[in-house]
Design a protein around this nucleic acid. Structure first.
Lengths: 190, 190
DNA sequence: CCACGCATGTAATAGGTTACATGATTTA
DNA sequence: TAAATCATGTAACCTATTACATGCGTGG
């Protein structure tokens, strides 16, 4: 399972399940996501495996927080995962299937609307990543070398997301052009 | 669930579970994948819902085949799904997390090896898609307008995959360059 | 007093993988 | 006769989503 390893990575500093969920919402959302109802039992399981320890802490506002700390064993497991090479799981892109099957409808107007909507969805995510990059690069305006290792790697991951989402937007635009050309060709020689 | 809709789309022509699995292996693999042990019960469920009907057919080689045919109800469901707009599920990219967490190791050699391996994995998939595009575009060398709607849409989906994977390869190369620059900067002013 | 944010969890269900079971026909 | 391909399925398990339950503290 990867969620366990993602949580190990996020637990460089001690945090509660609630904190980790907030981190998914705030920034990690572009590469992973988990519900609280999955996070809580997963943390418990990891504690049983002695990858984590937990302490209950009173909260200034609300019920007691259970704060998890990564153990040496947990850190060792994380390193093992990182050194095992990139984990590229099976990818499932329903919208690519939809695009293919729209051929059975053969209504280019619908295909066009579909592609424009898809482009807008990609564009929204792209804006989010670009905003995040702008925010961090402002901090290192003078000398990008000042970034520490963690910040440098975070920046790499943002660059990856930005380049790859930018291409998705462009690929939608390319397809939109192809559809428009085909529509024009159809009306002209019918 | 999307697998049901993917199968509906693939059943433009009657096919068995075994056939559908083969189609996933051959070409649909770049956007979806399912095991036989998931396909068989799913087809049965769809039949109970009257989206499909099935007939047993003797096989020339091997046990009887259960061939599924899409009903008008199944087709209606497919169209409903297609017209509901692009389905962009939650994306989980473990390797982006790994790249971020490699910052905690802060061993640029390991990051470099990771990125090179990731690029090679993306490149392999890209080669597969490019080969598929070449194969089909050879068929329509003279006039691309000769493609029917199905072939046209299949081509669009290939273009999307090629542009987007190409960008992933490039984003790896960009990151590799950044890592090398940082390594050079480190050795020079230490 | 009610809504909202903080905080933890369980239960039921759905989606997906791995392992196992069965048996026919073809090819080496 | 053994292995490979064809063909269908079940069972156990893991992963993930949705719905539900509980309760504290703060601000309107």
């Amino acid at each position: 399972m990867s969620l366990e390893h993602i949580l190990l990575g996020m637990l460089a500093e001690p945090a509660s399940g609630y904190d980790l969920k907030a981190e998914f919402e705030a920034g990690a959302r572009h590469f992973w996501f988990a519900e609280l109802s999955q996070i809580y039992p997963t943390l418990r399981r990891m504690e049983r495996r002695t990858w984590l320890t937990s302490q209950e802490e009173p909260s200034p506002s609300g019920p007691a927080r259970r704060v998890y700390t990564r153990t040496r064993l947990g850190t060792a497991e994380l390193l093992k995962w990182l050194r095992s090479g990139p984990v590229v799981g099976v990818e499932r892109f329903a919208y690519i299937g939809q695009l293919i099957f729209l051929g059975q409808l053969n209504d280019l107007e619908t295909t066009l609307a579909f592609l424009e909507r898809l482009r807008d969805l990609h564009r929204e995510k792209l804006q989010f990543l670009k905003a995040a990059e702008k925010e961090t690069s402002a901090k290192f305006a003078g000398d990008p070398d000042e970034r520490d290792g963690v910040e440098f790697h975070e920046h790499l991951s943002l660059r990856m997301g930005i380049v790859s989402l930018g291409a998705k937007v462009r690929s939608c635009n390319e397809c939109i052009k192809r559809v428009k050309d085909r529509m024009a060709a159809e009306t002209s020689h019918v």
